[in-house]
Nucleic acid binder design. Sequence first.
DNA 1: GTCTATAGCCCGATAGAC
DNA 2: GTCTATCGGGCTATAGAC
Lengths: 187, 187
Amino acid sequence: MNTAANKLIETTQELLWERGYVGTSPRAIQDRAGVGQGSMYHHFRSKAALAQAAEERSAARSIEEVERLFDTPQAPLRRVIAYLRLERDILKGCPIGRLTADPEVIADEALRLPLRDTFERIGAHVAALLKEAQAAGTLAPGLDADRLARTVLAVRQGAYVLARAANSSAPYVDAVEGLIALLDGQA
Amino acid sequence: MNTAANKLIETTQELLWERGYVGTSPRAIQDRAGVGQGSMYHHFRSKAALAQAAEERSAARSIEEVERLFDTPQAPLRRVIAYLRLERDILKGCPIGRLTADPEVIADEALRLPLRDTFERIGAHVAALLKEAQAAGTLAPGLDADRLARTVLAVRQGAYVLARAANSSAPYVDAVEGLIALLDGQA
DNA sequence: GTCTATAGCCCGATAGAC
DNA sequence: GTCTATCGGGCTATAGAC
């Protein structure tokens, strides 16, 4: 049955999001998943292997979410702005970005690459939209769209940091709206 | 003697930066500081108390660094850009922002407030400079300077996240330069 | 002030029964 | 596939000697 393995992955996704890699123990995963020790180690050789499976699923989910959001007939710059304004549980932060704080994740290629790839793929989508916006005359043509796409992603990631420090979503909204105002002023 | 307490604080600053709160054990602090168990618990009642002292020192250091940087005769917008371009060990990330990933830090007011205050104080400085720039005509007057200040801080924090995921400082530089291009286009 | 010893619990993983 | 038992070690803290 795949049901235990699946439950373990989902639970690990949750715990990695809430507590990070170092802060998540196999025991905690088993308890929340309602799966025994023997079962867990039957399906995954180690905590790292399970974490990798969980990361890959979270990464796929994030990328799909963005691709669904971008698949609309709206003007390209409007789609980027919609991405910045996407409804989120702001104080929970980003399930992907959160893991970059963890030195054990960054030191292990298998755990780091899903994070890098997620940002690269979303960044490529954003960059493509920004180039479309330039072609359509809604964004200044002198701007470097690839760079600017990274600015867009960075504002989201950093806005989570400010929100968590303040224990308030206000700084998140401000940071994002500040960028939108700059982008809109570039017509 | 204050020398043991001081050494403990400095070492804890380093370890919190490298490994976060959950990832830093009293044992690791003692070993690196060259201070015994008994000595540590004589000076600090708990890991949390020591972490708080370390945070407060890191916060003060960050604020001073920014205030020193801003205390120049340069044009206000140039000072904000200089802040964005400040030389940093990019892959190490931000010693303050890093801690927001830690749920135990966010759940404990004593550990969270130094983070919030750091961003608020630096944000206030940046906002003041942006308003000066608006008065001087180097930044569009219609922009909300307080919001935009948070965008500036968020780009820095988020740029660290992208850089660590990529194991490269390139995304950091891109994100920051993307914002600078937008700010410069607002003359 | 700093030392060593100890407490009680959790860590990540393995072994072998069922 | 899942169970329980066990391993060697680390966790945060306290106790009491020096």
